[in-house]
């Protein structure tokens, strides 16, 4: 199986409270925050690796995973890290975040899919910086492929994927014929979430994403990483979304202390008007 995994580099999501917005409101300033792979994309890579191997012998590849990102030269480290984790080749589309929106990324990804002809695109359900949650859906539409979003489980079948989607109140199981687009949620990296046809259903993976081994880090330097120009993928490189201004959410006002329950009820009735 051949799988395309789009990866996005985001500002350290664990320190998202440290982003700043300059007085001009023209952008979100992430200076000083360490760039990291979008966590959902790391989960997508783990799922793709599981689908292209026998879990018992993970060092033997049984398929191909191609990672692709959109960004400047510095994003090569993100791709190299993905190659060290197990991906087979990488593509970087040279551009910067401020020149992109979800629709443009989806159209460019379609062009890459047309060239690479993967059996499935596995991607994070959303990037944790913009939280747009639309590229997978748009890409499936442009490709006219079936889509299964927010996947918590994926089991490979002959020519199809059986995908468990966690929804309010339960799990919807979809059988999508290949080729298809799958976007993944957090639980896709649980020990029994993903099985290729080669992996025994009794096998249990370690919880979470796999670690890059030191020999693999060294070997990743020799894996192919090609750079493409955005204009080579799509003639129309104008984003459809224009950001006019950014502003921080207003600071929360300090609360008040009430004397007793009667006082509380009074405030809820007269001020909050919820009673």
């Amino acid at each position: 199986m051949k799988i395309l995994v789009p990866l996005k580099r985001v500002a350290d999501p664990d320190n998202a409270n440290k982003v700043k917005i300059p007085a001009s409101g023209e952008k979100i300033d992430t200076t000083g925050l360490e760039p990291k792979p979008n966590p959902f994309d790391e989960y997508a890579l783990e799922a793709a690796l599981r689908l292209t191997e026998n879990g018992q012998t993970p060092k033997v590849r049984a398929g191909e995973v191609i990672v692709v990102t959109f960004g400047p030269k510095e994003c090569d480290t993100t791709l190299r890290a993905a190659l060290a984790t197990g991906a087979d080749r990488a593509i970087r589309v040279d551009t910067t975040d401020d020149k992109l929106d979800g629709d443009l990324v989806a159209r460019a990804l379609k062009a890459i899919v047309d060239r690479e002809k993967p059996d499935v695109v596995v991607m994070g359900k959303q990037a944790v910086d913009g939280d747009s949650n639309q590229v997978a859906q748009l890409l499936a539409e442009y490709l006219d492929w079936p889509q299964a979003t927010f996947a918590a489980t994926v089991h490979e079948e002959d020519g199809a994927l059986l995908v468990g989607r966690e929804v309010d109140g339960g799990v919807i199981t979809l059988r999508v014929k290949l080729p298809a687009v799958v976007s993944v949620d957090l639980r896709i990296v649980a020990p029994t979430s993903v099985y290729s046809t080669k992996t025994a259903r009794t096998f249990k993976y370690n919880d979470g994403v796999r670690f890059a081994a030191l020999p693999a880090i060294m070997a990743a330097k020799k894996k192919p990483l090609v750079e493409l120009k955005l204009a080579d993928l799509t003639a129309d490189v104008a984003p459809k979304i224009v950001y006019n201004a950014f502003q921080a959410p207003p600071a929360r006002k300090a609360g008040i202390k009430v004397k007793d329950v009667a006082d509380l009820v009074l405030h809820l009735k007269d001020e909050a008007k919820v009673l």
Binding site: A81, G208, A212, I217, M218
Partner: peptide, 17 residues
């Protein structure tokens, strides 16, 4: 050194566990 930086990140991921 790019190589050592990569190793640093990789070993940090293990240590986080």
């Amino acid at each position: 050194d790019a190589e050592r930086d990569e190793v640093r990140k990789a070993i940090r991921a293990i240590c986080a566990k």
